[in-house]
Write a protein that binds this DNA or RNA. Structure first.
Length: 297
DNA sequence: CCGGACTCCTGGTTGC
DNA sequence: TGCAACCAGGAGTCCG
């Protein structure tokens, strides 16, 4: 489940190889990986070949590589996507969906493989549009509705708290809403909520400002820590561009820890179904607080 | 605005 | 050993 740290590891890994590189050939092995490309696969191939990449960028879980000032190659890893840098003659992974041959002025010929088991991820060519908040900042049109992520210099804490307070929903649902705050998925939502001692279904309107601040701080802490450890891998589902696993799975306190003692109080971590996914939490440390909802004006 | 249901999807795991 | 059922969930859409 690639979330912000995993996508950033991929972005950073691609940066030296892609920046300034030119695409020489494209092979589509599975057109379903072009679901978000709003034209036939031939269009994707025709437009990619000859394109020169600029520095890869990221917002939340979306990654894109600008090609000139008007368009970008947008990559979303979905549940199981990987972008691997390979020697041009390296054997192809069985689940490779798209392959780009590139040539870099200093590194020479390389192959960029988009590997994706479940095909929830995708590649697409998209137009760059004004992001809307910072003048001159351009993002792919597919990314425009995605909120800035909490590691973004331009993330507006005050605006986040204000929007959060107006929501009438549970806190985990809000954390997973990429239009409110991006980059957080199931793993880091559970980890941040555990760290902040907040129940996943705590109504957003009942979170005091200090507790909301604590939560955002814990979000940043867990994302930063995971990033420093190269992301979270449970198996071969997530790898960096060199095909290596991250180590953060050894640092998880709640996610996937059902039945294990809570590292804080020793009571068992439990798992419940919520939003069609698992929620892992300590039923003692993370209880719903029945604070009166502030009256709305 | 909100939440639930549904869709996309397949390989690893579990169960018989 | 073989096969079917089950499970993981990011993001978009649709509907009540």
């Amino acid at each position: 489940m690639p979330e912000l740290p995993e996508v950033e590891v991929v972005r950073a890994g691609l940066e030296p190889a892609l920046t300034g590189a030119t695409v020489t050939a494209v092979r589509i092995y599975d057109v379903r990986s072009l679901r978000r490309h709003d034209a036939p696969s031939e269009d994707f191939v025709d437009r990619m070949v000859g394109s020169t990449f600029e520095t890869p960028r990221r917002r939340g879980k979306f990654l894109w590589v600008p090609v000139g000032s008007e368009t970008a190659l947008v990559v979303h890893l979905g549940m199981s996507g990987q972008v691997l840098l390979r020697d041009p003659d390296a054997p192809l992974d069985r689940l490779t969906r798209i392959s780009l041959d590139i040539t870099h002025p200093r590194h020479g010929a390389l192959r960029v493989d988009f590997v994706d088991q479940r095909i929830f991820g995708s590649m697409a060519i998209d137009e760059l549009v004004e992001s809307g908040d910072v003048p001159g900042d351009r993002v792919p049109s597919q990314v425009r509705h995605i909120a800035r992520d909490p590691m973004d210099d331009q993330f507006d804490d005050a605006r986040f708290f204000a929007r959060l307070a107006k929501r009438n929903t549970g806190i985990k649902r809000a954390l997973l809403d990429q239009t409110l705050i991006s980059g957080i998925g199931n793993i880091y939502a559970d980890e941040a909520l555990w760290a902040a001692r907040i129940h996943y279904d705590q109504p957003t309107g009942t979170l005091s400002r200090p507790r909301a601040k604590t939560l955002l701080a814990e979000v940043r802490l867990v994302l930063g820590k995971a990033l420093a450890e190269g992301g979270t891998s449970f198996d071969a589902q997530y790898l960096n561009v060199n095909g290596e696993s991250g180590y953060f799975s050894h640092s998880l306190n709640a996610y996937g820890q059902q039945g294990e003692p809570c590292p804080r109080c020793g009571r068992p971590i439990v798992r419940e179904q919520f939003m069609n996914r698992g929620s892992h939490f300590c039923a003692y440390c993370q209880r719903v607080r029945s604070t009166a909802r502030p009256s709305r004006g």
